Computed example of a mutant assay.
Amino acid sequence: MSEVKLAAAIRTEFGKGAARRVRRANLVPGVLYGHGTDPVHVTLPGHELLLALRTPNVLIALDVDGTTALAIPKAVQRDPLKGHLDHIDLLLVKRGEKVTVEIPVHTEGDLAPGNFLLEHVLNTLPVEAEATHIPESVTVSVAGLEGGASVLAKDIPLPAGSTLAVDEDTVVLQVLAAQAEEPAAEGDAETAEV
């Protein structure tokens, strides 16, 4: 996993008006917290942060007034209509420290022949990994699975250095037999048209 370097400035103004001024300048207000330290309110470059967040669980090396801190995104708020970043919470981490994150679950292969549906019970899998070696995703083969089959968390191969942060018997994927709707009787169709 690569680190993304961003410069951050300490924010001294607070409130709705101050946040709007920050966003108009193409900056994103945020807060940096963790390890028992007081929260630090910062502003981050909007475009660079948006690009960095394309990678799930990205490790961000922040330069805050000459000091470098490692952080991972904890909560990201976006504008529901325009899609731009409104605010970000960043969690301080240290090299060698274990963190719990959720990584995307991808599937590969085709189900067994038949009328089956694959249901993603969990789209992400909670794992514990070292902060500088967070896996980007896990891939599960569903080749040949039939209706009624389930993939449990313990069945998913994890990258080296990662452990499950969820009960190992948790269902992540399951295969369902698709059920066809029965055609409506002619009498039912005539009453529906009236």
Rank of each mutant, 00 (worst) to 15 (best):
V121L: 03
P126I: 08
H47R: 15
I103P: 02
I103L: 07
G144N: 14
D79C: 00
P73A: 12
F116G: 11
T55K: 15
S137P: 07
L70I: 07
S141L: 04
E146P: 01
G36E: 12
V40N: 02
A143M: 04
L32Y: 06
G147E: 14
P126V: 03
G36C: 05
E130S: 14
P56Q: 08
H120Y: 15
P135I: 04
P135S: 05
D65Q: 12
D38C: 00
A129L: 00
L44S: 02
P104E: 05
K82R: 15
L117Y: 02
G114F: 11
G83W: 06
V58W: 01
L90Q: 02
E108Y: 03
T100N: 11
N123L: 09
N115F: 09
R54N: 11
E108I: 14
R78M: 11
L145V: 09
E48V: 09
A61V: 05
L51C: 09
L32F: 07
T107E: 12
E136M: 04
V42Y: 10
R78C: 06
G83A: 03
H120I: 11
I134V: 15
V93R: 07
V105F: 02
T43Y: 04
E130C: 13
D38W: 01
L117E: 07
L62S: 04
R95Y: 12
L145I: 03
P113R: 09
L44N: 00
L85K: 13
D110V: 01
A69P: 01
D79L: 02
L62D: 08
L70N: 05
P113D: 10
E97C: 02
A129P: 08
P104H: 03
V127C: 00
P39S: 08
L51N: 13
P39T: 11
V93S: 10
A69F: 01
G96T: 06
T37G: 12
G66L: 05
L111D: 13
L91Y: 05
P113S: 12
T68V: 12
A61I: 10
P104T: 04
D63S: 14
H120E: 08
A71I: 02
E130R: 09
D63A: 09
L122W: 06
H120A: 15
K98C: 01
L125I: 11
G114P: 09
V140I: 03
P39Y: 04
L70F: 12
P104Y: 07
D110T: 08
G147N: 13
A131W: 01
V142I: 15
A75N: 03
K74L: 03
P104C: 08
V101K: 11
G144M: 01
P80K: 10
D38Y: 00
V93F: 04
T139N: 13
L44Q: 03
V58M: 05
E128H: 02
V99R: 14
V142C: 10
H41P: 08
I72T: 02
E102S: 13
G34Y: 00
G147D: 14
V121Y: 09
G36S: 08
T132E: 14
A112D: 09
I103V: 14
I134H: 07
L81P: 07
L125E: 11
L125M: 08
E97K: 12
D89Y: 12
R54V: 05
L53K: 01
L111W: 07
T43P: 02
T37S: 10
I72E: 09
R78H: 07
